[in-house]
Amino acid sequence: MSTTSTNLAEAITQRAARRQELEHRLSSLDGLDTGERLQQAQSAQRDALEKLWRSFAPESRWGNPPEAGEIRAAAESRTPRGPDRDGIDRDAYFSMCRDHLCQADAQVAGLTEELETEAEERSALEAERREIEGQGHGVPATREGLSTLAEAIAGQRAELRKVRQTIDRLSEDNGDPGSGETGELEAAQCRVDELAAAAMLGDVDEAEQRAAATALAKARQRAAPPLEARKNSAAARRGLERKAEELSEGVEHLEQARRELAAEVYESEWKEAERRLVELLEGEELAGIMRQFRDSREAYSRAYCAAYGAAPTIVGESHLKVEGPLLTHHKLRWPLRV
Rank of each mutant, 00 (worst) to 15 (best):
T3L: 15
S5Q: 15
N7G: 10
N7A: 14
L8A: 01
T13P: 03
R19Y: 08
Q20I: 03
Q20T: 06
E21Q: 10
E21D: 09
R25C: 03
L26Q: 11
Q39F: 05
A41N: 06
D47W: 07
D47Y: 05
K51F: 04
E59T: 06
A73D: 02
P80G: 05
D84Q: 11
D86P: 00
R98I: 09
L101R: 13
L101V: 03
A106P: 00
V108S: 04
V108R: 12
E118S: 01
E120F: 01
R122E: 11
R129D: 03
G134N: 09
P140L: 14
E144Y: 06
A154P: 01
R161F: 02
R164W: 09
R169D: 06
E172K: 14
D176V: 04
G183H: 09
E184Y: 02
D193A: 12
A197N: 07
M200F: 08
D205R: 14
A212V: 01
K218V: 01
A223Y: 10
N232Y: 12
S233E: 13
A236F: 00
L240I: 07
L240K: 06
L247S: 06
L247G: 05
E260L: 11
V265K: 12
E267D: 09
E274G: 01
V278P: 00
L280P: 00
G288K: 13
I289H: 09
R291T: 02
S296Y: 08
Y308R: 14
G309R: 15
T313P: 01
I314C: 09
V315L: 14
G316N: 13
L320Y: 09
E323Y: 08
P325W: 15
K331W: 14
W334D: 12
